[in-house]
Design a protein around this nucleic acid. Structure first.
Lengths: 344, 344
DNA sequence: TTGAAAGCGCTAACAT
DNA sequence: ATGTTAGCGCTTTCAA
């Protein structure tokens, strides 16, 4: 392949500098010359090399995006948001999927650094509840802006977009209470994760506000996968003092709960009310009308990319750490309702 | 930032060539020297510039991936497959999401070309049923291997991984017939798309084989979105000679059908059997037990990436067009069953 | 308004 | 086993 700026220059009878000028609309160049050059560019089907340009300008216009699970629509939507904003600014995205694996995350970081990306957006893996030190130092040594998306990282100081999980859980629990429930169970995520802790906090806060006693037996934990919630739900259904409502804190887990209900012929909300955290479109499309607290995934992607671009522009203020908190949206479809008089 | 090979060379008291040699494990270098160099690299936290290397070697080790809808898990899984194989070969992925928009696709192609990617994997947009000429020529002029994934492109000659939609539809229809159905409706995709035509072909083939008359009124079309299937399903339910089974040809559309059933209190499979094309995990997780013909998305991604790597390696045979056809898998869960004696 | 020349960070003959 | 040199394709002073 390889038609270069040199070929254009020769054929147009000008210098490489001039060609570069018309390419970048910089400096003066007679209109006549410009036309001549443009014509040759067309003829030779020339596309400038971003590689050479990057080397020369020390700018790649490329950012790295690291996600743990590209096939989960939640991350798909984050990327969608990121790429929308990136598009508007002609930024390239190098994507790394880590399968929730710390090794791969480290490797991705190394690859991205070699590529001299200008910034990085990362949704930290759920595999551990806090960054380990190697990972942390790698991230810091990158020497470029890092934006965390929904990172449950409390010990570090990166900029990022965060979701208020306390508020989300509070809203959900409150909705249940206001629908008339007093016996409300929560099926939460992995025990020592920040999001898990936050959500429990929100749950408790709502109960407290309404002077409803918090019962430990109504609090259970899963691992974000549907099977764990399935089991937890089965347990809940066996309880003597059975709850009338369940708050399930992840999109995969709510599927497990619904399955358990299904198997036990429990109707929603006639026999049991439910609210989930992070939606699953499919189940509402088929008409199940499940209520959700929805983490704003596309918005988070957009906001993250915008923040990164800001950081890129004002290099001086790079030390300054910015954090934006987004609030989940409560979407009530009816599954939260209290029908009353259930089980004893 | 910017610690370069020069800095390493100076500090280690060797030439840049030597540093380059230890970096790439090429040529001879005394172990003692190697250690010295490696030590300095560590000390200075040096990461080589892929940009400079690319310019020098004329190889970027980067490929482009273009998808129409990153937030659809089907494409998410394709990317997952692609990136697994890419990882193994230390290839970077520049991702472009086009929102099913031809303009964006063209722009993405331009950006990728500037980045001097070495190959491209593309799942052509569904927005039109065939490539337009500008797009086609852009693709051909890229001068690099292009791999089509599930492209319903009949007029062109790119390599690619294809799914046998005829076979998939045939299998689904046959399963319905063998379960005992004779009145089988199909809710198909957009009318003049290749996948739509292929799937209709498979549907008819199965009916023919079992000497079941093909009724036009049992054949309807949608637009791949759930609403269109919802409407089509409602129509079907109103028919005098109502079918006992429906084959719905896209993952979004089957959700619309299920909703329609739900609203009309139609139970699956007691009142109506159903098989879908391309799965939706969620609805089976909750326990609905819907049967699907599943397009192998992750596999397709892997196969596509492997094919691309092959093309990259044997440049000579680049003209040679390779096509691999993958077969959808029929997964029967019970929704295809014939319960008999339904409606008149 | 244009061009010459140096340089971005690396690799790859070719010498030694 | 190591170093010298040129060059990859572009931008960017500086001069003309």
């Amino acid at each position: 392949m390889a038609v270069t700026i040199k070929d254009i220059a020769r054929k147009a009878g000008v210098s490489r500098t001039t060609v570069s000028r018309v390419l970048n609309d910089s400096g003066y160049v007679k209109d006549e010359t410009r036309q001549k050059v443009l014509k040759v560019i067309k003829e030779l089907n020339y596309t400038p090399s971003a590689i050479a340009r990057s080397l020369s300008t020390n700018k790649t216009n490329t950012i790295g995006v690291i996600v743990p699970e590209i096939n989960n629509p939640f991350f798909g939507e984050i990327i969608k948001g990121v790429s929308q904003v990136a598009d508007e600014h002609d930024l390239n995205i190098i994507l790394c999927n880590t399968d929730d694996n710390r090794e791969k995350e480290l490797k991705a970081l190394k690859l991205l650094k070699e590529q001299r990306i200008q910034g990085i957006i990362i949704t930290p893996t759920y595999a551990e509840d806090q960054f380990n030190s190697e990972y942390l130092s790698t991230l810091e040594n990158l020497g470029i802006p890092v934006i965390l998306l929904d990172g449950h990282v409390k010990y570090t100081d990166f900029s990022g977009i965060f979701i208020d999980h306390v508020k989300g859980a509070y809203d959900a629990t409150k909705a249940l209470i206001e629908a008339g429930h007093k016996k409300i169970a929560i099926i939460n995520g992995r025990k020592n994760y920040k999001i898990t802790i936050d959500r429990l906090k929100g749950y408790k806060k709502a109960l407290d506000e309404y002077n409803i006693a918090i019962k430990d037996k109504y609090i259970s934990y899963g691992d974000f996968e549907y099977k764990s919630a399935y089991k937890a739900t089965k347990q809940i259904l066996k309880m003597d003092d059975r709850p009338t409502a369940v708050f399930v804190t992840s999109n995969m887990m709510i599927l497990g709960s619904i399955r358990a209900f299904y198997e036990e012929n429990i109707n929603i909300p006639q026999d049991m009310a439910i609210i989930g955290f992070d939606k699953i479109d499919a189940i509402n499309i088929i008409g199940m009308n499940i209520s959700f607290v929805i983490g704003p995934s596309i918005e988070m992607g957009k906001a993250g990319m915008k923040m990164l671009i800001d950081n890129l522009d004002n290099k001086k203020s790079r030390e300054e750490i910015k954090r934006i908190t987004l609030f989940p949206e409560l979407v009530l479809k009816g599954s939260e309702k209290f029908i009353g008089n259930k089980c004893e």
